[in-house]
């Protein structure tokens, strides 16, 4: 599985109102790009455009992959809400994609993935019997089960407590290694910790923000990580 780079350029309008002006952004192949910006600036819209799902507005521009192949069928999405189906077990939720495509699911691989996310003992449980962190781990297993080279994460850890969030960041960074990842987040600390590339989205531009020199996943207590977080937060506050 070769993860492609993704190039997005264009503008987006809803009912004639510009959400973001012509912007250019590239998601480097096999790396994490973290996008920050104030609420309503269009971060999730960019994610939805790349995912190819319906959007309310009108996008004028192009989204292309570096290998010139269409993105359809090569993208998987993980959202803030775990989107687990409450009537299915964790294992059945993990193989939902295969079931929806009318394929025979690889239950052994699903069980293996659940073990990797630490849910092996909970495979037969319903989502409502799991904690928030466990549910997000189940959602991560479902995302990994799709085995897509491009993974789009829409604030997937924002509803978790600080400790669980850090654990999930470690887990996701390890399991999504070498995939092209777009992480939409409101948390500068998360972006600085995980991003190979950081982009601050405003209504006018997608501005790159230089991350610390060490590669992710970064030590959140390292002086340059802390300094970068502080500068990024100050920049976000100015950009409002």
């Amino acid at each position: 599985m070769q993860a492609p780079a993704i190039q997005l350029s264009g503008s987006y309008h809803i009912d004639g109102t510009c959400l973001f002006a012509p912007i250019d952004m590239t998601l480097p192949a096999g790396e994490w790009t973290c996008v920050l910006g104030r609420s309503g600036v269009g971060k999730s819209t960019i994610l939805r455009l790349i995912a190819g799902v319906r959007c309310a507005g009108d996008f004028q521009g192009a989204i292309t992959a570096s290998d010139r192949r269409p993105l359809e069928g090569r993208v998987s999405v993980m959202a803030q809400s775990d989107l687990l189906l409450p009537w299915l077990s964790v294992l059945e939720n993990t193989v939902l994609g295969a079931r929806l495509r009318g394929e025979v699911p690889d239950l052994r691989r699903a069980a293996n993935l659940l073990e990797r996310v630490g849910l092996a003992r909970h495979a037969d449980k319903r989502p409502d019997s799991l904690s928030g962190g466990m549910r997000q781990r189940a959602a991560l297993a479902r995302t990994l089960m799709e085995d897509r080279p491009v993974v789009l994460l829409d604030e997937p850890f924002s509803a978790l407590d600080a400790g669980t969030r850090a654990d999930m960041q470690d887990l996701a960074a390890g399991l999504l290694k070498d995939r092209t990842v777009l992480l939409v987040t409101h948390d500068p600390a998360e972006a600085v910790r995980l991003g190979h590339q950081i982009i601050v989205l405003t209504a006018d531009a997608a501005q790159p923000w230089t991350p610390p020199s060490l590669p992710p996943i970064r030590d959140q207590y390292a002086p340059d990580t802390v300094a970068c977080q502080a500068q990024l937060l100050a920049h976000l506050r100015r950009a409002r």
Binding site: V53, V75, S76, V77, A79, L83, G97, L100, R101, E146
Partner: peptide, 27 residues
């Protein structure tokens, strides 16, 4: 059915009938 679930199902490449059978009807 919550839009997020339907979007996810379509991203997964789910057919309309399978989405009806496995998501909409149980929901």
């Amino acid at each position: 059915v919550p839009v997020g679930i339907l979007d996810m199902a379509r991203t997964m490449g789910g057919t309309e009938w399978q989405i009806m059978r496995r998501i909409k009807i149980p929901h």
